[in-house]
């Protein structure tokens, strides 16, 4: 079999995954796209392993490891998304802009500019994001003190 077939397929799958990561709004869809990218890599690994007839089967072993890690990653990623959703009331990636540079003139503190944006959604969620924010602030303060 021509090696270009799996290689091209892997490339295209990877780019589709890239598009998904960059274009999707829901964090879980982004995670799906990441899975696509990982699978593209897996395909590459398997194809080249077969082509090289590697006695150690490094490519296949690595594929297995990648699959395992992908499973772990999806578990952790989902847990994080859940946590974010609980605190922010949204799992939309483009709304999680807490690290944005504050606009000149806006009065919002630099730590929680995103909070103002999702206030409407956050209201229905009972979890007050203020507490976490305060905690984050405290943690940042502690860190600053420690470094000082």
């Amino acid at each position: 079999m021509h090696l270009a077939y799996p290689a091209v397929l892997a490339s295209l799958l990877f780019c589709v995954g890239v598009y998904g990561v960059l274009a999707r709004r829901n964090a879980i869809l982004v995670l799906m796209s990441v899975e696509l990218m990982l699978n593209a890599v897996n395909l590459n690994l398997v194809a080249f392993d077969v082509w090289l007839r590697d006695t150690l089967h490094a490519g296949q072993a690595l594929t297995l490891f990648t699959i395992t890690i992908a499973a772990a990653e999806i578990g952790l990623g989902l847990a994080i998304v859940l946590l974010v959703y609980r605190n922010r009331g949204s799992s939309d990636i483009d709304r999680l802009t807490g690290l944005a540079e504050p606009r000149p003139g806006s009065s919002g503190g630099p730590l929680v500019p995103g909070a103002a944006a999702d206030e409407d959604t956050a209201d229905e969620n009972a979890t007050p994001h203020g507490t976490t924010d305060t905690k984050a602030t405290e943690k940042a303060n502690e860190k600053a003190e420690a470094s000082a």
């Binding site: 890239v18 990561v21 960059l22 274009a23 990636i93 483009d94 999680l96 802009t97 807490g98 690290l99 944005a100 540079e101 000149p104 500019p113 995103g114």
Partner: peptide, 20 residues
Amino acid sequence: GAAVRRAQTGNVQTYLSALL
């Protein structure tokens, strides 16, 4: 700096797009 600050939207996808 002000121009660069405008790029700091906090949107991860934008950053990643530029990176890729």
